[in-house]
Design a binder for these strands. Structure first.
Length: 968
DNA sequence: GAGCACTGC
C-alpha cells in the first residue's frame, strides 16, 4: 500500500524538522504511550495524505482520524485549486462525529511543541497562511455536487459497515456512559481511547446544551503521557492546551489548566489522590476516567478502592475505567459487573516468533557450548528466584522432557534453555549471508532489544562493539536505561539515514515510557527486573524475572507503530504457557507505610479494612508490618490514630522517613541543604552514568563528596555547584553538568521540589518563608555535622555498623545491620571503597537485596548524632565497662556521668521537639535566652565540636570518645 | 564492584 512505502519521503523529512520525533526537541516527553500513539497514527495519516492523492483513507482509520486524514487530503487538493475536496473536508468533519467545529488548519497540525523560537515563528506564519487558505471556502456559495453527495454517502456507509467504526461510534459509548455509573472501556494502546473517550463525553454534553455540567478528569500513570495526551487533544480541538481552554493538564509542579467547567483535564493519578485531601467527594468532577489501570500501579489501585467507595456518596459521578483487553473483565467484576465496551486497536499487525521458531528460521546451532553457558549464567542474573515463582520453575523443569519430545520442539531446545542467544540472533538478523539463511530478509526499521538491566545492556553493547561490522557507520547502537544520559537525548528518536540500522538496547523503559516510532523489529529477552518486598526478611528485593504475557504483548506492540513488524521472544512455548498473565500488582509487592499514612489522612477508616477492599489486597502480614513501622516512627499511636508527627508526615508528599527529615531540617535551621537531600531521596539522585564511563563517573562523585563520607552531602555539593554554575549562564551550567555527569533536568526538578516542600512547611507553620534559602530557616546550614545529625533524625533506625576488614583480598570495611547481618555498601556510593572512616556508624535510606544486600546511599554519622536523634537510650554497666546504648544495639563506651547527662539532654530535646511539632512552630533563633534555643544550641554545640577521634576500630566493639568528658 | 520503571494540590 502506498502509505507504507511513503515513510522517509521528502515530505516526511521536511516535517521532521519540527516534528515531535526528530526536531530540535530536547526531551522525550512526547514519547509517551497511550493517547500519544493516537497522535502518531494521525501523523501517519498526514504522510499518507501528502502522497495518497485521489485515494481513499487507509482502512485502519476510524472516526475522527478519518476526518483528520481528509482534512489533510483536502489541504493538498486545495493547493491544486480543487474546491470540491474542500467540501469533502467539511462533509467529513460534520459526518464523522457529533463534534464541535474543528478548524482543519489546526487539526492537521502537529500538537504544540517546544521547537526553537525561530521555527515556532515560522510555523505560526505558516499556520496563519493556512488558516487563511482554509477560510477561503467560507466565502463561496455552497452548490450541490451530486457526485460528492454519493461519494459521501458511500463512504459513510462503508464506515458504518466496518465493525471498528461501528464500535467506535460516539453514540454507543456516550449512551453507555450516560446510562451507567461505571463503564469499562477496553482496548489496546493505539486504539485512541485516551484521546477520544474524554472528548466524546464533553462534546455530548455540549451538544445537549449541558456543557457547563461537564468536567472530565482523566488520570494517567506517567507525567509525560498526561502532557502529551492533553496537547494532542487540544490540537484536535483546534485549541492550545490550558489557558482556560477546553483541555489542560496538571502534574506535580507543572500545570496548564483548562476552564473549570465544560472541560477535560489530564492529570497524573497522584494529583487526584492529593485532591482528595481537600475535596473528598471530588465534587468538582463529573466524569472520572482512569486510564491504563491494567498496569496495576499502586496509585491507580488505591484510587480504584476510593472511587468504589465514593460511588456510595455521589450518585451523579460517572466512572470510566480504561484498560488493556487482557484483564478488562477483572475491573468489571470489581465494580459489580459493570458493562464493558471494546475498542479495537489501530496498530499494525506484528508477527510473533518463539524460540523454537527462531531456531528454525536462523538454523542456529550452538558452536561452543561451554563458553556460552557460562556467559549465559553471568548474563542473566537469575540466581535469586522469588518464592512464589519457584513453583513455576519446578513445573517448567518437570514438563520439559515431554515438551522436548513434541514435534514443535527443536532438537537443540534443551540446550538453548541455558544458553543466551542474543549475539547470535542479532548477528543473524543484521548480517544475513545468503549462505547461512535464505528465509530472512530484513526491511528498513529499527531493532529494539528488551533486556532486564544495566549489566545485560552493557554486555550486549560490548559484544556488538567487538564486531567490526557493528562499529561501522552502517549501525547506530543506542543503550537505553534510566541512568544513562541517552534517555534525555533525541538521538534515540531520530530516524537514521538510509542504509543505517538503528539498534536500541533497552530496559522496560521502552515498554511504556519511551516510544521509539520507527521500531519494526523487537527482540524480547523475556526477562524483566522487578522490585518486590520480602516480607519474611523485611527487605526490598530487585530480581530479574520472566516477563508476564502482558509485558510480552506490550513489547510486541512496540514493533507495529509504523508498519507491520516482527517480534522475537527468546523463550520457548513451554515457558510462554507457564507465564503469568500479568505482573503482580504493585500494591502486593511494595512497602505500605506511606500508603497507610495516606489512608489515615484521608480519613478512610481502619487501614486493614480499607486495604482488604483492593482488587488484589496486600497480605495481612504486610499491612501489619507497615503499621508497626509507623508506630515505631511515632507517626501512629497504638489505636492507629495519627500522632502530631504522623499528621505532618502524611501531609508531605514524600515517604515518612523523608518527611521526618524535612521537618527536622526546618526545626534545626538547616532547611536548604536538607531539602536538597529530601528531594533527591524521594525523586532520584541527579547523577548520570554513561555506559563505559562508570569509573570516571565514580571518580567525579568522589571528588564532589569533598571527603564528607556521605552520599547525601555529595548531592548537596553537586547541587550547590549547579546553582553557582547556573548563575554564570547556560553555557556554564551545561559544562558543569557534563563534567560532573549530572542531569540538569533532574537538578531542576529537585530545585522545584524544594520549593514545594518549603511551601508545605510554611503552611504547616514550621518556617516563616516559602523560600528554602530564607536566612531565618538556614541559621545552621553551613554546619555539616549538624546536617548529618538531621539525616539521622530523619532516617533512623536505618543504621549500619562499620567494622574493619582484615581481608587482604578486598580492602575496605565490613558493614552490618541489626536485622540482616553483613551487608554491602553499594559500589555507586562514595563510601564504597572508603577505608578511613571517622566513626563506626552509617545511616542510609535505601537498602535492597539484589545479588547481595546493598545500602544504596549512606552517610557516616557520629555517636552524638545517634544518641540525640536515634532511639531510646539505656545506660548499663557491664563488668568493668560503663556503656550508653541506643535501642540496645548501638553501644558506646561512656562514663556513667556523661551517659546520664546525655540521656537527660536527649529527654529535654525530645519534649521540646514534640512540643514544636504539636504546635508546629519554628524555633526562635533570635532569642538566645529562650529555653528552646538553649537546649538546641547545647546539643548542636555537642554535635559540632565533638573531636574527630582516632582510628575508630582500635577500640573493641564499642567506642565513645572519652575526650568529651569536659563538655556538657 | 553494580544501578527495572513510575509517582505526589
Amino acid at each position: 500500500m502506498s502509505f507504507r512505502s511513503s515513510r522517509g519521503g521528502g515530505r516526511r523529512g521536511r516535517r521532521g524538522g519540527r516534528g515531535c520525533r526528530d526536531g530540535s526537541r530536547e526531551r522525550w516527553e512526547k514519547g509517551g504511550d497511550g493517547g500519544a500513539s493516537r497522535g502518531h497514527s494521525s501523523d501517519r495519516d498526514r504522510d499518507q495524505g501528502a502522497e495518497g492523492q485521489g485515494a481513499r483513507h487507509p482502512p485502519h482509520l476510524k472516526g475522527r482520524e478519518i476526518g483528520l486524514w481528509y482534512a489533510k487530503y483536502g489541504a493538498v487538493r486545495r493547493k491544486q485549486a480543487d474546491r470540491r475536496s474542500v467540501r469533502t473536508v467539511l462533509g467529513f468533519m460534520v459526518l464523522s462525529e457529533t463534534r464541535t467545529f474543528i478548524s482543519p488548519a489546526v487539526a492537521k497540525d502537529e500538537p504544540p511543541d517546544k521547537w526553537d523560537e525561530d521555527e515556532q515563528q515560522q510555523d505560526e506564519k505558516e499556520k496563519l497562511m493556512r488558516v487563511h487558505e482554509d477560510l477561503e471556502f467560507l466565502f463561496h456559495e455552497v452548490v450541490r455536487d451530486v457526485s460528492l453527495d454519493s461519494y459521501l454517502k458511500r463512504d459513510l456507509q462503508s464506515k458504518k459497515s466496518d465493525p471498528k467504526y461501528g464500535e467506535m461510534l460516539v453514540g454507543e459509548l456516550v449512551q453507555l456512559i450516560n446510562s451507567n455509573r461505571v463503564l469499562v472501556v477496553s482496548g489496546e494502546t493505539g486504539c485512541g481511547k485516551t484521546t477520544q473517550v474524554t472528548q466524546f463525553i464533553l462534546d455530548d454534553h455540549i451538544n445537549r446544551g449541558m456543557g457547563s455540567m461537564c468536567r472530565v478528569v482523566c488520570t494517567q500513570p506517567r507525567r509525560i503521557s498526561a502532557i502529551s495526551v492533553a496537547e494532542r487533544v487540544a490540537a484536535e480541538r483546534a485549541e492550545r492546551v490550558g489557558n482556560g481552554n477546553s483541555c489542560g493538564y496538571q502534574i506535580r509542579l507543572q500545570s496548564r489548566l483548562p476552564r473549570r467547567q465544560g472541560s477535560i483535564l489530564y492529570c497524573t493519578t497522584g494529583i487526584i489522590l492529593q485532591w482528595l485531601r481537600s475535596d473528598p467527594l471530588l465534587s468538582s468532577i463529573s466524569h472520572l476516567v482512569l486510564d491504563e489501570i491494567h498496569e496495576r500501579n499502586l496509585q491507580s489501585d488505591v484510587l480504584l478502592i476510593i472511587v468504589k467507595e465514593l460511588l456510595n456518596f455521589r450518585d451523579d459521578l460517572k466512572i470510566i475505567l480504561m484498560s488493556a483487553t487482557l484483564n478488562a473483565d477483572k475491573f468489571s467484576k470489581y465494580f459489580e459487573n459493570c458493562p464493558m465496551i471494546h475498542i479495537p486497536g489501530l496498530t499494525f499487525p506484528v508477527e510473533e516468533f518463539l524460540l523454537e521458531d527462531i531456531i528454525e528460521i536462523t538454523r542456529y546451532r550452538p558452536q561452543d557450548p561451554d563458553r556460552r553457558s557460562s556467559w549465559n549464567r553471568s548474563f542473566w542474573q537469575g540466581r535469586h528466584i522469588r518464592p512464589e515463582k519457584e513453583e513455576k520453575e519446578t513445573e517448567y523443569k518437570e514438563s520439559w522432557p515431554f515438551y522436548a519430545e513434541a514435534p514443535q520442539a527443536n532438537g537443540c531446545l534443551f540446550f538453548l534453555m541455558f544458553v543466551c542467544l542474543f549475539l547470535e540472533i542479532l548477528l543473524f538478523f543484521v548480517c544475513l549471508s545468503a549462505a547461512k539463511c535464505h528465509v530472512f530478509v530484513l526491511q528498513d526499521g529499527a531493532i529494539l532489544v528488551f533486556l532486564p538491566g544495566w549489566d545485560n545492556i552493557s554486555s550486549l553493547n560490548d559484544l556488538l562493539m567487538a564486531q567490526p561490522m557493528f562499529r561501522s557507520d552502517r549501525f547506530v547502537i543506542i543503550p537505553l536505561h534510566s541512568l544513562m544520559p541517552t534517555v534525555n537525548q533525541t538521538q534515540v528518536f531520530k530516524r537514521p539515514p538510509l542504509g543505517v540500522r538503528k539498534i536500541v538496547i533497552a530496559t522496560n523503559i521502552a515498554e511504556t515510557s519511551i516510544t521509539i516510532d520507527d521500531v519494526v523489529y523487537v527482540i524480547d529477552g523475556g526477562k524483566i527486573k522487578e522490585t518486590s518486598f520480602d516480607i519474611d526478611n523485611n527487605i526490598s528485593t530487585l530480581t530479574a524475572e520472566w516477563v508476564s504475557l502482558a509485558n510480552a504483548k506490550q513489547r510486541k506492540g512496540r514493533a507495529g507503530r509504523v508498519c507491520p513488524g516482527k517480534c522475537y521472544h527468546l523463550y520457548n512455548g513451554l515457558r510462554a504457557s507457564l507465564m503469568d498473565a500479568y505482573q503482580l500488582p504493585e500494591i502486593m509487592r511494595t512497602p505500605l507505610e506511606e500508603l497507610c499514612l495516606q489512608i489515615k489522612i484521608l480519613k478512610l477508616g481502619s487501614i486493614a479494612r480499607f486495604l482488604e477492599k483492593a482488587p488484589d489486597p496486600p497480605t495481612e502480614k504486610a499491612v501489619n508490618l507497615a503499621i508497626k513501622n509507623l508506630i515505631d516512627l511515632n507517626a501512629l499511636d497504638h489505636s492507629e490514630n495519627l500522632t502530631a508527627l504522623g499528621f505532618h508526615l502524611a501531609r508531605l508528599p514524600v515517604e515518612p522517613h523523608i518527611g521526618k527529615l524535612i521537618l527536622f531540617g526546618a526545626l534545626l535551621g538547616c532547611l536548604d541543604p536538607v531539602l536538597i537531600i529530601a528531594a533527591s531521596l524521594s525523586f532520584k539522585d541527579p547523577f548520570f552514568i554513561p555506559l563505559g564511563k562508570e569509573k570516571l563517573a565514580d571518580m567525579r562523585r568522589k571528588t564532589l563528596s569533598k571527603n564528607s563520607k556521605s552520599d547525601h552531602l555529595t548531592i548537596i555539593n553537586a547541587f550547590r555547584g549547579w546553582e553557582e554554575a547556573k548563575q554564570h549562564g547556560a553555557r556554564y551550567e551545561k559544562e558543569y553538568c557534563w563534567d560532573n555527569f549530572l542531569s540538569a533536568n533532574t537538578l531542576q526538578m529537585l530545585h522545584n521540589m524544594k520549593g514545594q516542600f518549603a511551601e508545605h512547611l510554611m503552611h504547616a507553620g514550621f518556617v516563616s518563608s516559602k523560600d528554602p534559602k530564607d536566612p531565618k530557616s538556614n541559621v545552621n546550614s553551613d554546619n555539616e555535622k549538624l546536617i548529618k545529625a538531621v539525616i539521622v533524625a530523619g532516617l533512623y533506625p536505618k543504621v549500619a555498623m562499620i567494622r574493619p576488614s582484615h581481608s587482604k583480598k578486598r580492602p575496605g570495611v565490613k558493614v552490618y545491620t541489626q536485622a540482616d547481618g553483613k551487608v554491602c555498601i553499594h559500589p555507586k556510593s562514595v563510601n564504597a571503597e572508603e577505608t578511613e572512616f571517622n566513626y563506626t556508624w552509617l545511616i542510609y535510606h535505601l537498602k535492597m537485596r539484589t545479588s547481595s544486600i546493598f545500602l544504596y546511599d549512606c552517610t557516616e554519622v557520629s555517636p552524638f548524632s545517634l544518641l540525640f536523634f536515634g532511639g531510646d537510650i539505656t545506660i548499663q554497666k557491664d563488668e568493668d565497662q560503663e556503656t550508653i546504648a541506643v535501642d540496645k544495639w548501638i553501644v558506646f563506651r561512656s562514663p556513667a556521668r556523661i551517659a546520664h547527662l546525655v540521656k537527660n539532654l536527649k529527654k529535654e530535646l525530645d519534649s521540646l521537639l514534640e512540643e514544636k511539632i504539636r504546635n508546629s512552630a519554628p524555633v526562635d533563633w533570635q532569642n538566645r535566652k529562650s529555653k528552646d534555643c538553649a537546649v538546641i544550641t547545647a546539643i548542636i554545640d555537642l554535635i559540632t565540636t565533638q573531636e574527630t577521634p582516632r582510628a575508630p576500630w582500635t577500640r573493641k566493639h564499642t567506642y565513645f570518645d572519652d575526650d568529651d568528658d569536659d563538655k556538657d
